[in-house]
């Protein structure tokens, strides 16, 4: 059985509807919300602030510290057990690694920049939505960045390469391969590449081309959100 029609009626290279908003957490240094389909991510950045324990301080550059968390009520049906888990620790780490090459923290030695990513509602692609929100929040916090980061999942569902998998597709009865990709927006350098499942080398190349296309579309939404924040505040020019 091949996967001819997507569950939600999208084309194979079509993203779910997206939305981005800057400045959603008033008390944070910078914050952003990113939604793709039914997945909502909120990211808040605090800092630069003093890093404790002191032994972890680096006198040459600041540290980026990310924390990913799925809220207890966020899942599709089942309650997510609150608190850190093996999964959330891993995603915190890959979020950090996806963002670290693009932020320049040499101006903030001995400090830490905390990025908290909270998933309010989830429907697959949470780490990707989290990275998109975190990149926006870092920009809003005024942290020097060489580039923004966009992220999307691609995969193989029922023999077809598709863009931006939903939870239903990830759980396809014929099996699905899920590849999370994050790219810098200007240079299209890959900063995150994870895969769950099996895929041939040729399919992977095709999938990455599709991811590039998806990231380009996400980039436009992200940039527009950053601009809107300042155009709207001043009731337009």
């Amino acid at each position: 059985m091949t996967y001819t029609q997507r569950f939600d009626g999208r084309k194979i290279d079509e993203l779910r509807p997206m939305e981005a908003k800057i400045g959603v957490v008033e008390r944070a240094t910078g914050s952003a919300m990113f939604r793709i389909g039914k997945t909502y991510a909120v990211a808040a950045v605090y800092g630069p602030r003093e890093l404790y324990p002191q032994a972890m301080q680096n006198p040459l550059k600041g540290r980026l510290r990310c924390n990913y968390n799925m809220m207890a009520f966020s899942g599709s049906g089942e309650r997510v057990r609150p608190g850190p888990s093996r999964r959330s620790k891993e995603i915190s780490l890959v979020t950090e690694k996806a963002l670290a090459p693009l932020v320049d923290l040499t101006a903030f030695p001995s400090t830490v920049i905390d990025v908290f990513v909270e998933l309010i509602q989830t429907d697959a692609g949470t780490r990707c939505a989290g990275i998109c929100a975190a990149a926006l929040a870092l920009a809003d916090a005024g942290i020097p960045m060489k580039d923004l980061v966009s992220s999307v999942a691609v995969g193989k569902v029922g023999g077809k390469i598709v863009l931006d998998l939903s939870k239903e597709e990830e759980d396809h009865p014929d099996g699905a391969t899920d590849i999370a990709v994050a790219m810098s927006t200007r240079t299209n350098q890959i900063t995150l590449l994870q895969m769950d499942g099996e895929v041939s080398a040729d399919d992977l190349k095709e999938a990455l081309q599709l991811a590039k296309k998806g990231c380009d579309a996400i980039k436009n939404v992200q940039i527009q959100a950053l601009r809107d924040r300042y155009y709207q505040e001043g009731n337009n020019e």
């Binding site: 240094t29 910078g30 800092g47 630069p48 320049d104 920009a139 809003d140 916090a141 005024g142 942290i143 020097p144 960045m145 060489k146 950053l226 300042y230």
Partner: peptide, 21 residues
């Protein structure tokens, strides 16, 4: 490298940040 407004002074291009600590 930041969100801000562009300021051009002869050959120098700088960005005045709109946010940040």
């Amino acid at each position: 490298i930041k969100v801000g407004t562009v300021s051009i002074n002869n050959r120098f291009v700088k960005v005045i940040p709109l946010a940040g600590k």
